[in-house]
Design a protein around this nucleic acid. Structure first.
Length: 427
RNA sequence: GGAGAGGUGGCAGAGCGGUUGAACGCGUCGGUUUCGAAAACCGAUAUACCAGCAAUGGUAUCGAGGGUUCGAAUCCCUCCCUCUCCGCCA
């Protein structure tokens, strides 16, 4: 959620920021609505103050044994007026909020301008495309042939967009999760969380999935709970409503969860195999930090995700997303894309973003730092960051396709061997 | 799921429907004292919004939402959560 006070003081900045995202926002309407809300609020509060004063005097009159009926009637009228004004305020404000919740976070000024993914900027590339002396296969051929990946039986269980991993395939996925988590907690200083996969609508709103992206979420309607599309949701909201001590920051959390996504409207686009499925595992990293350091922390966070790809020996590139392709809640995003040798294409395995105070405001995440005079300062909004570290299916794809051999077997990357009981080759 | 108890400020814990935004205590911060510290004493210690240069004033918030009333932390209803016992269950 954007800051209404900021919108008031610099409407053109927001207008331009939203235009850069390809969005036309009727800023003047918002401001007019805001003005009405504020005026009504002032009026109703003034009335309420008069009523409170009147009520207070009734107590004194009654105590003195006087007649209280006239005063009661006067107070009742004041109360009715205040209620009427406040009702109008509440109606208008509800409408205003409903609009605000649909407005995306402005991108930082440094973000490259652009319309869509074609305008994203490649800022770095690591490693090289693996060279094979044979035609490289895609994972949807390699996996089933090795007997570690079963799409047909998955479809029998759950329909399209699901996969069953089997034997060494299942263990390889588990190895990746374990190694990711161990690396983040032991080398990068993260605290691991194991969180609920079902959350309330309120929680979804905190990170920005609701109200705008309801159609992408699986909902358990009988219980008013939704399946998380990413660990970002429960982890970022973990401290929702709290005022943290500045000395605690930054808080760095990592969590492994399955992620559930309806992928409505995505059918047919890069959906073959397990590149885009309705349920996948992911290790996420989340930072709660301050405005002063959120941008530099984003680079650090991205480095933690990159470290994993490098240690796995996977060829990847870093994209800086343009204004038109940056996600709704994000102000600045780097994507990491790994090379799929079997399909000659790049696959997004991580998206690292700073949300500035956008989620902090929605989730009511604040911190307090000592002021210049040493006394506790005013609460400030927390800046949130997150990144995949990393998304499982596409890492699995990249590992299989990168480490495949002529006979269809797959070598196990060195860092994962301890997690696979020393297994060298999946065959 | 059934029965019961309860949800009040950072914590602990009071609160006849009427100067209660909320006692007392602890904690925290500032000051006095001290060579320094402890102890003691004094004072200050929620959040948001609105008006104001500011001082300050106003409104709201005692799990959430409704209701009764001139007035609700206090009464009523609904819901949520926590705890205890029973049932069920990985």
């Amino acid at each position: 959620m954007i800051d209404l006070a900021a919108l008031r003081s610099a409407p053109d900045t927001f207008r331009k920021a939203w235009a850069d995202r390809g969005l036309t926002v009727e800023v003047d309407n918002l401001l007019a609505l805001d003005e009405q809300v504020r005026a009504l609020k002032f009026q109703s509060e003034t009335k309420r103050a008069e009523q409170n004063a009147a009520s207070k005097s009734i107590g004194a009159i009654a105590k003195a044994g006087g007649d209280v009926n006239a005063a009661k009637e006067a107070a009742r009228l004041l109360g009715d007026e205040a209620t009427a004004l406040d009702q109008r305020r509440a109606d208008l404000e509800k409408g205003l909020m409903a609009e605000l919740l649909f407005l995306p976070n402005p991108c930082l000024p440094s973000v490259p301008l652009g319309k869509d993914s074609r305008d994203n900027v490649v800022t770095a590339t690591w490693g090289e495309k693996p060279a094979f002396g044979f035609p490289a296969k895609a994972h949807w051929d390699l996996g089933p042939a090795l007997g570690i990946m079963d799409f047909e039986r998955a479809a029998k269980l759950s329909g399209s967009g699901f996969v069953v991993l089997k034997g060494p395939g299942a263990r390889l996925a588990r190895a990746l999760v374990s190694w990711f988590l161990d690396t983040h907690t032991e080398k990068h200083g993260y605290t691991e969380l194991a969180v609920p996969y079902l959350v309330t609508p309120q929680t979804m709103q905190g990170t920005g999935q609701l109200p705008k992206f309801a159609d992408q979420l699986y909902a358990c309607k009988d219980d008013d709970l939704l399946l998380i599309p990413t660990a970002e949701v429960p982890v970022t909201n973990f401290h929702a409503g709290e005022i943290l001590d500045a000395a605690q920051l930054p808080l760095k959390y990592t969590a492994h969860t399955p992620c559930f996504r309806r992928e409505a409207g995505a059918a047919g686009i890069g959906t073959r195999g397990m590149t885009r499925v309705h349920q996948f595992d992911k290790v996420e990293v989340v930072w709660l930090t301050t405005a002063e350091r959120s941008e530099s922390d984003l680079v650090t966070l991205r480095g933690h995700a990159e470290h994993l790809l490098q240690a796995l020996g996977l060829h990847y590139r870093v994209l800086e997303l343009c204004t038109g392709d940056t996600g709704f809640s994000s102000a600045h995003t780097y994507d990491l894309e790994v090379w799929s040798a079997g399909t000659n294409s790049w696959l997004e395995v991580s998206s690292c973003s700073t949300f500035t105070d956008f989620q902090g405001r929605r989730a009511n995440l604040r911190y307090r730092a000592p002021g210049a005079d040493g006394k506790p300062g005013k609460p400030q909004w927390i800046h949130t960051l997150n990144g995949s570290g990393l998304a499982l299916p596409r890492c699995l794809i990249a590992v299989l396709e990168t480490y495949q051999q002529a006979d269809g077997s797959v070598r196990v990357p060195d860092v994962l061997k301890p997690y696979l009981g020393g297994l060298e080759v999946i065959r």
